[in-house]
């Protein structure tokens, strides 16, 4: 497809026509915060952290699903955007039960990192303290819904890369939650191959390897990236 020329944060750059603004920005070293985006699987546009301003559009657009266009002028770091991003992250903290001090993912968590990036020193919204469950019926993995940010990354890797489609989303609004198979305990979900891809895809401490204690759970993103790019890069053995 034709090459498009556009401006992101006053930087003139060219991108392939099918690229998204997020990809074009990343290729030029421009950082846009993301949470639900995961390289190698379809983009979802769920979290809205990657919102950007495009000249001539009154709406804010999610960079991870917006294709580049010729002559586009994009701003990624305005005060308005940073305010919204900070608000989104604060709302995620208020909506679940995030006790970082006792979390398996403490120090290795994308939500925590986003809070640091946004300069969040406290949450202005009332904590909801929802009553959510933990499922440790699977022999190797567990899911703690208290820490789930509903990014659907687990759903997408399991469906698109592993081909099992064990995960899905159920409920609406504040009762939304991820389920395994037909809302069965994960350990009884017969479609699950125990491949661990969802464990590595989860940005938070929600999906974890059983037996990990505070701050021990690290997601192996490199392994996931290897699996999703192996064919295009023709790398058949992981380095």
């Amino acid at each position: 497809m034709a090459v498009k020329t556009l401006k992101i944060d006053d930087q003139l750059l060219s991108a392939r026509g099918e690229e998204t603004i997020l990809e074009a920005a990343a290729a030029s070293g421009i950082h846009i915060p993301t949470l639900c985006y995961l390289q190698g699987v379809a983009s979802w546009g769920a979290c809205r952290l990657c919102l950007i301003e495009v000249e001539g559009s009154s709406k804010l657009l999610p960079a991870c699903v917006t294709p580049v266009a010729e002559g586009m002028v994009v701003q990624t770091q305005t005060e308005r955007l940073n305010n919204y991003r900070r608000m989104i992250v604060e709302l995620l903290f208020a909506e679940g039960n995030h006790i970082c001090a006792v979390c398996v993912s403490n120090n290795h968590c994308e939500l925590q990192d986003l809070a640091i990036e946004m300069g969040i020193d406290h949450v202005r919204f009332a904590y909801q303290f929802p009553d959510r469950s933990v499922d440790i019926s699977h022999s190797q993995f567990g899911v703690d819904h208290n820490r789930c940010v509903l990014c659907t990354r687990c759903i997408r890797v399991c469906d698109e890369i592993e081909g099992a489609h064990t995960w899905d989303m159920a409920g609406r609004g504040r009762t939304s939650h991820v389920i395994t198979d037909l809302n069965q305990p994960w350990g009884e979900a017969t479609s699950c191959t125990s491949c661990g891809k969802c464990v590595n895809a989860c940005p938070t401490g929600s999906i974890f390897r059983r037996g990990s204690t505070v701050a021990e759970m690290e997601h192996h993103r490199a392994q996931l990236e290897f699996i999703s790019t192996a064919r295009t890069k023709r790398e058949w053995v992981q380095q």
């Binding site: 903290f93 039960n97 006790i99 970082c100 020193d121 406290h122 949450v123 904590y127 929802p130 009553d131």
Partner: peptide, 19 residues
């Protein structure tokens, strides 16, 4: 100064709020 996570978020002290 709100000093530490319990003062700022409720943290472990607020675990009992859940249900």
């Amino acid at each position: 100064i709100a000093f530490g996570d319990c003062a700022i978020t409720g943290n472990v002290t607020a675990l009992r709020n859940v249900s």
